[in-house]
Structures are given as structure tokens and as C-alpha cells.
Write a protein that binds this DNA or RNA. Structure first.
Lengths: 322, 322
DNA sequence: TTGACAACTGAACGAAAGTTCAATTTAGTT
DNA sequence: AACTAAATTGAACTTTCGTTCAGTTGTCAA
């Protein structure tokens, strides 16, 4: 291109830039309607529409959402889209090294409070995070609420006991609590069969399966996980589960990375709602966080495709990374 | 307020923040329609409208227009609104100490180029800035363009002569040039009267008054102004003009801060289009800049209320300050 | 100069957003 | 527990916005 031509093109383009930016300014900064912008600039309204969309396309107009919350919301939206969630709730963490349980518990508590309504049947799991969320759940006097434990009790544990959690949860809403009158983990598959067949557990399981909402966690299988720290499973069991491909559990159902229950005898000794039934409950709220939980959370998502995930910022990023 | 109440209020407010920011995120960042946002969030579309406007009201959503040009455009809009201009053109200055004439000239040249069209009668003033804008005016072969000088010639000056500017301007468009065959400043009021009455100057003045566009500058009255540097007026004249309240001139019509011609003999010796006639030309383009010109520019605006002002960034800010 | 092509411009339509008003719910008070 | 006032919600309507298509202008090559 010859210099004169180039210069003309430049001049012309500059004038266009100017017009476009003037349009953007008057529309976005002064808040005029596009018709008014057109009148001020002496061009057609449609031209203004085009100028504005060109400005946005070029990134000359940027829209920012302020506040720390904004980045959390971005994470939430990314999680929702990535994992097909109705809702992801990401709790902020101030210190990367700190235990995120507290903030997750707070977020979970607030969300659960909002979910509760009269006439509801809600199934609940257990775990440290859920336990800690109790103080954040705003109790109300609701009619006809039924709280059903989704798994048997843990004999050995005083705290973080499924039975205790369900019980205190029910109390908050002055609701009826339905516990599974059996250990979560029995000694043999036969013992499980006997209990299920003969002790009327079917009834509670049926009710659990008719729950409209399920709230549960996901357990890791590392040495530091609650399950092992509390001694519910011993080291050799942990090892053999790992060898069988387990990455963690949901209600003591041990699953592999794809969310499929592993082929391991322990899975036959568990007295809890099975994953398929869990997946059939309309609203499934998975509450779990911590960087070591990433793998099991993914597995749990595959297993029961929760409608809601409550987690923390770091875990959220970790989940999105892979 | 009691703690429990406060806590409930906070929780509720937080939930509202969350919803609002989620709405803002999905609408502004993901570009969904408000209806879709409503569907995603499970609320009514109208609620989304309200959430978004609340977010904007709170400043949680900020729209930015990038680029250095943006600040210039803001200045332009401020000038336009402040002084009732159809258009303000603000040229950027890279160095605050540098002479802004060059950039103003470039901007003026581009604007004048855009104004030119066939059949136009355009009246032109003079001045250093206009002179320098000549290289930036893109000449074209336009039919029936008439270029009329708005004031007489300056005998003593070789450069920046009204006659020369009009002449070269006319050449650019291969137009007819109409010059006023007389000095801009004569020796006495009587001499002026004689020239006007007897030398057919009326004809050119009439044409000047029928111009559709006028392009002119504004001269300062400080010791360094072109007018005095070139020796058209001597120091005692400058002093007495200042004493009479003059802050500068438009086409050698000396005006005070309110834009009113000062009562001074020099104003009776000027052969140029008077300010009232100038104000009656439909399009009035005032080209002037430099920090020392602020006062006279304001005066000129009051005097002839230009439709277009071409100036530089610093002068623009200075004009807006008072 | 003429003709073909491309870029730009403007009108009409359909979609989206904002406003107003009535109805409902909620909170505070008696 | 019942009432009032305030806030919130949703439906109907108006305005504003975006897209499509046809017409125009300007540009380049033959």
C-alpha cells in the first residue's frame, strides 16, 4: 500500500475509533439510551448499536464485578457448568494452610437452613464438616419435618456419629428423627443380611429412599481421614481397600475414581443407603472440602451426581484443574 | 439490636449479596439474557432486573472504557455539556510543557476535512494554529466551494497572514477564494468607514455573513501572543486594551472576560466580520489552545457560542476547572 | 467511463429489558 | 392472635435493543 493510501486509511480508522468510543462513553458512562446517543452523535440508532457491539468485541468496554465474592462466584459457576450441578457453593478460605472445614460448615449450614421447609423429609449422612455445620443451621419450628439417617450408627465414636448428627439436626426443627438401629459397619455380609431382613430396617431404608433432600459428605481414604483416625477401619482394611481401587467413601460405600463401588468385602458389610438409591433422591447436597478430598469428591460426583456441592475455594480450584 | 437478630439480618443480607452477584456474574460475564439468568437462579425475571440495577447502583458492577482516548472523550463530553457545544475535540498532549499547537492543528485539520463538502461557503480566520493545520487538511476537488476570509489582511506579516491562510485553504479544495482587500487594522475609525463605504468591501462581508461554516481562533493579549510578537500592535496599545478590560481577541475584535467587545478605539479600526455576524453563522468552529488562552477562550465562547471547539487536553481541563 | 463488488446505511420486525401497579407476604405492634 | 404498615413479589405494558434484509454509496478494475 502506498503511503498516502495508508495515511488515509489510518485517518479514517482513527475517526471511527473516536466515534465508537464517544458512543461507548455516552451510552455506558452517561447512561443515555442508544437513541439519544444516536441523536447526540448525529448518526442512526442502528449505527450506535453496531458501534457499541464493536467496542465490546474489541474489548474497549470492560465490565468488572467488584469484591472478593466475585471470584468465588466465578468458581461456583465453573463448577456448576463443569459438573452439571444446579448449585455450587464455594466458601472463601483466608489461609491456604488452614483447615477449610469451618468455612465449608458455615456455608453448608446457611444453605441447609434455606432449604428447610414444612413437610420435608430429609436424609442426612455424617462427618466432621456436617457436625460443625450444626451451629450454623438456623433452627425453626417447622411442621411435619422428618429427619432420616442415611446410615447406621458408629458404635465406637462419641462425636461425629451419624445417629447423633441426625438427632441434633432433627431437634433444631423440632422434627421427628428416624435413626437406623444398627451399626454402620457390621462384622460380616451375613450379619448384614440378617439385620436387614429381620430387624425392620427395611422400613427406615424405605423412608430414607423417599427423602426429598439428602445431605452427605465424602470421606477420603488417606491415613489422616476421619474414618481411620477414629479407628472405624484399621490399617490393613484401608490398605486392601486402596488396592481394590477405592479412593474414598460416600456413606461407607467405598468407590473408585469413577464413582463405582469397589469389589471389596467391606462394601458388603455396610448398612447404609446404597449409592443408587441416594442418586434417586431429588435434591442431593454433597458437603466436602480439603485438598486431599479432590479425588473422592470427583468420584462422589460421578457416583451420585449431586445437585448441590458445598466446598471451599482451594478444593474448587483443584477440582476444576484436571 | 440483640445479637441473634443481628446475626439473622447479616445472614439474610449475605444471601442477598450472593444472589445479586450471581445474577450480575451470569448476566454480565456469561452474557445470558435476564430471562435465562432468572431460570438459572430460580427467580423471576423481574427480580433479576432489580438485582442487576441494585448491583449497578451499589457500584458492584463497574463498566470501564479502556484506552487513553477514553479520558479525552470524557473531557470532550464535559466541555460539550458545560459550554453548550455540539462538539468538543480535545487533542492529547504528551508533554505538559510542550506547545500544544501542533496537536490542536492536527485535530482541527482532520475535523475541517470532514466538514468540507461541495457547494459550501466557509469563512476562515487566521492564526498560528490554523496555519499549522493546513498540512492536516485533506484536500479534495469539491465543486462550488467558496472560501471567504473573515478579516482583512495583515500588511506586515508574511506568515500567518489571514489572506495567505484563506488562499491556501481555498487551493486545497480548488475553491474560489474571497479575500478582503484591505488591512485588518487601519489607522482610524474614519479610514475604516471610508474603506467600507467606498471600496466595495460590503460585498465580501455580506458573503462572509452568509457562510455556513466559520473557522477561527482566539488570540490572547499577553506579551507573548502572536499578535504582539509580530508587531501588529505595540506595547502601549496592548496596555490600554488591557486597561479597557480586554482579555484577547476574536478576529481582532477585542473582548472582555464576558465576551463583550471592549470600549476602545482599536475596536473601531478593525476591518473584520463583527462578532454578532459571526455568531449568526450556523457552524462556528473555534480552534484554540494553550494554558494562557483559557480566559480568552471562555470569553470567545460567550461572545460567539461556537458549535465546535478544538483544543488540547490541558486547556480543556483548565477550562473546566473554574 | 462503466460495471461489478464490497462496505456501509437504514427500515422493519422480533426479542429483551425496564416500569408501573396491584397483590401478596412479612414484620412489627396492639 | 389479629391488625397495620412496609417490603417484596409478580403480571401487564412500554420502551429499548438487536438482527435481518433490502437499498445505497463508494471503490476498484477493466
Amino acid at each position: 500500500m502506498a503511503p498516502p493510501h495508508a495515511q488515509r486509511a489510518r485517518t479514517k480508522s482513527d475517526a471511527g475509533d473516536e466515534l465508537r468510543l464517544r458512543a461507548a462513553w455516552i451510552y455506558y458512562m452517561e447512561g443515555e439510551t442508544q437513541s439519544n446517543v444516536a441523536a447526540i452523535l448525529g448518526v442512526n440508532r442502528i449505527t450506535v448499536t453496531r458501534l457499541l457491539s464493536e467496542a465490546r468485541r474489541r474489548g474497549e468496554v470492560t465490565i468488572q464485578i467488584k469484591g472478593e465474592l466475585a471470584s468465588l462466584i466465578e468458581l461456583q459457576r465453573d463448577l456448576e457448568k463443569r459438573f452439571g450441578l444446579e448449585r455450587a457453593i464455594v466458601a472463601p478460605v483466608s489461609d491456604a494452610k488452614a483447615d477449610p472445614t469451618a468455612v465449608i460448615a458455615a456455608a453448608a449450614g446457611a444453605h441447609i437452613s434455606a432449604l428447610m421447609r414444612a413437610g420435608l423429609t430429609i436424609g442426612v449422612g455424617w462427618g466432621r464438616t456436617l457436625h460443625e455445620s450444626l451451629p450454623h443451621i438456623e433452627g425453626r419450628n417447622l411442621k411435619d419435618v422428618r429427619v432420616v439417617s442415611l446410615l447406621g450408627g458408629i458404635m465406637e465414636a462419641r462425636r461425629f456419629n451419624p445417629a447423633e448428627f441426625a438427632w441434633r439436626f432433627a431437634e433444631l426443627f423440632e422434627a421427628e428423627g428416624y435413626l437406623i438401629p444398627a451399626p454402620a459397619l457390621v462384622d460380616s455380609a451375613d450379619a448384614r443380611k440378617v439385620l436387614l431382613d429381620q430387624c425392620g430396617l427395611e422400613h427406615v431404608f424405605k423412608m430414607a429412599q423417599t427423602a426429598e433432600i439428602a445431605v452427605f459428605g465424602a470421606g477420603g481414604i488417606s491415613e489422616g481421614s476421619t474414618t481411620y483416625k477414629l479407628g472405624h477401619l484399621n490399617e490393613s482394611e484401608r490398605k486392601s481397600l486402596t488396592e481394590a481401587g477405592a479412593v474414598g467413601d460416600v456413606l461407607y460405600n467405598f468407590i473408585d475414581g469413577d464413582g463405582v463401588p469397589v469389589n471389596h468385602p467391606i462394601n458388603d458389610r455396610v448398612i447404609s443407603v446404597d449409592l443408587e438409591s441416594l442418586a434417586n433422591i431429588p435434591q442431593r447436597v454433597l458437603v466436602s472440602g480439603g485438598s486431599d478430598k479432590t479425588v473422592v469428591i470427583k468420584a462422589a460426583i460421578r457416583a451420585v451426581s449431586p445437585t448441590v456441592l458445598v466446598t471451599d475455594e482451594l478444593t474448587a480450584r483443584s477440582l476444576l484443574k484436571a
